[in-house]
Design a protein around this nucleic acid. Sequence first.
DNA 1: CGATTATCGTATGGTAGCGAACGAATTGAC
DNA 2: GTCAATTCGTTCGCTACCATACGATAATCG
Lengths: 149, 149
Amino acid sequence: MCDQADTKNLSVGAWTKRCYFAGRALMDERLRPFDLGSTQWYVLWYLVNNGPSVQRDLGRALELERATLSGIIATLVRKDLVAQTSDGGDQRQRLLTLTAAGEALWRRIPDLSFIHDAAFGRIDEADLATTIRVLKSATERLQTLLRKD
Amino acid sequence: MCDQADTKNLSVGAWTKRCYFAGRALMDERLRPFDLGSTQWYVLWYLVNNGPSVQRDLGRALELERATLSGIIATLVRKDLVAQTSDGGDQRQRLLTLTAAGEALWRRIPDLSFIHDAAFGRIDEADLATTIRVLKSATERLQTLLRKD
DNA sequence: CGATTATCGTATGGTAGCGAACGAATTGAC
DNA sequence: GTCAATTCGTTCGCTACCATACGATAATCG
């Protein structure tokens, strides 16, 4: 967004947006036959790899706000891919488990790691490290400014 | 998202997301007193710097889909910040102009360039260039894969 | 123990983004 | 000149994200 602005630094933000949305668009496209969104895929992925989990842990791992995750879970429950129960422990928490339909769907979904390989696989290790460092420090600075005046 | 996944390359995507949303969140926070979203700000910014513009050009400059821009314009028109007219030329196109209220609001909004300065200002030029190159090539590869099978 | 504080999930309302389908207008091919 | 293809904007339905406010449950402090 706004490459033509005064400082060339703005273009970092522009490419950050482009890259983020291009990745999401590709995931969404490949998941469309399964009627699944990219973030919904991440939730299933987490449950497959970590087993039944509490909503709170899932939100922290995927860095999603409670409200955001709540909506995504509601969608997955509506599609009968995930079940939301109480495990008898902390009554505030909800335990999420894959349903049989959810597991069956997951087995039908092809591997999506080619997306990350295609995007970053051929890039030099040192350049990747630099990119991560730049994005990380920029993010930290932005978050420091947030609500800190 | 998903830092704990198998390949470390995944974390580039995670930081891309983090950085993008951190920047947007900061813009949104600073614009909240003016009841303006970050993308709405970009539209006003474009009109201020380029004068009355056709919706099509604005969409291309900001890289927004027609449908996305249409919604944003509708919001700005509802707030009486932007007016949508026909300029007598191509009858399919709509000319966008800032209203008096839009110009008045723009004058009240503080400069937001500090956001980009804070995020990327202190980063080494060479590292910035590397980051842009990595993000650009990743984006291009992703877009090549999109709908090309 | 009781009252305050913190945490978890939900609900609401908003912005931002995309795909698909549509009508209207323009352009191009023949 | 007519008909097909393209372009422009809108609308609809959807995902995803956040802030805010709320109720319910835990944890803590007195």
